[in-house]
Design a protein around this nucleic acid. Structure first.
Lengths: 156, 156
DNA sequence: CTCCTTATTGAAAATGATTTTCATTACCAT
DNA sequence: ATGGTAATGAAAATCATTTTCAATAAGGAG
């Protein structure tokens, strides 16, 4: 536990406290799990893992904490089309911005970072244009590609 | 009703029949509503409208038909983050491909077509690269921008 | 046009993810 | 150390979407 960032307090304590939220064991466990995750976890996935470390935690707390984290912009909430939300730290362990490639056959999700630079550059320009034209303050974007992975492609 | 496409049968009858689906009154009503819609309708929105024209229709039929339509690629299914799916004809009345700008404050959704050409061109290239690298057959893409509209921006 | 197979339908019940309620517990500023 | 208040868990409530099942209706064959 206590996933520290070098020395001192975990990186998120500051932002958390600054917004009037308290640091609790449950929240530490949840953030720890998110930080270590290498895939996109659902609320229940997180619950299972958290429960192993801290059996008293309830699913309700998972949902509440994820909601706060998403509002603070510390995590992204995704819908990959399978009826349950998935969560991911905004700045992953590697801090790499990525987009998703989703197989509609088996629901596999591939993170890719290729071409990201060109995409991001175009997005930046698009954002600027849209912000001006529609008087919108753009905060975030979502890009996903849907298709069939090689296995599902053959299977069909 | 009977939204014809010039002369002859409605444009979707062919694809529908070709896949072994039957043409029913309920389905005609639903497609008619989608074709006339100028916003992104939820299943319930469609149900309300359909029910006005054809009171016997059930919500179940709406869901089932939307599912078929999405599988046939005749409609897109979107998640704008408010807990209910929204549907839109793949080829709208104007046939314009567009992306979405979503206000996280009030859930308003703006369709935009600006910069679409550049976006689509970049996506095409990205798709090609991804398809090769990950051995994926890419069928579709999703691009959404999230932010605050001017009203919500001020309100906060 | 009539018959027959089979897809489709509506109503009601089931499902399953997420929220809410509420009494209890535990941060943490003072 | 302690009081005010945010946070918690359990259980119940919501709510969109699915499933079940018996009844109905497309639409091809004859």
């Amino acid at each position: 536990m206590r996933a520290k960032h070098g020395l001192g307090q975990p990186w998120w304590h500051g932002k958390f406290r600054g917004c009037g939220y308290r640091i609790t064991l449950g929240r530490e466990v949840i953030l720890d799990i998110l930080a270590k995750a290498d895939t996109h976890l659902s609320a229940e996935d997180i619950y299972i893992k958290a429960h192993a470390q801290y059996p008293n935690i309830g699913l309700t707390t998972i949902y509440r904490t994820l909601d706060i984290l998403a509002n603070l912009g510390l995590i992204y909430k995704f819908d990959f089309g399978d009826g349950r939300a998935r969560y991911e730290l905004t700045k992953g362990p590697k801090g790499t911005h990525h987009h998703h490639l989703i197989c509609t056959g088996c629901n596999r999700v591939i993170d890719y970072t290729d071409f990201i630079d060109e995409e991001v550059e175009l997005l930046r320009q698009t954002e600027k244009g849209l912000a001006k034209k529609y008087n919108f303050k753009i905060i975030n974007h979502l890009i996903q590609f849907y298709g069939l992975c090689n296995k599902c492609s053959v299977k069909r």
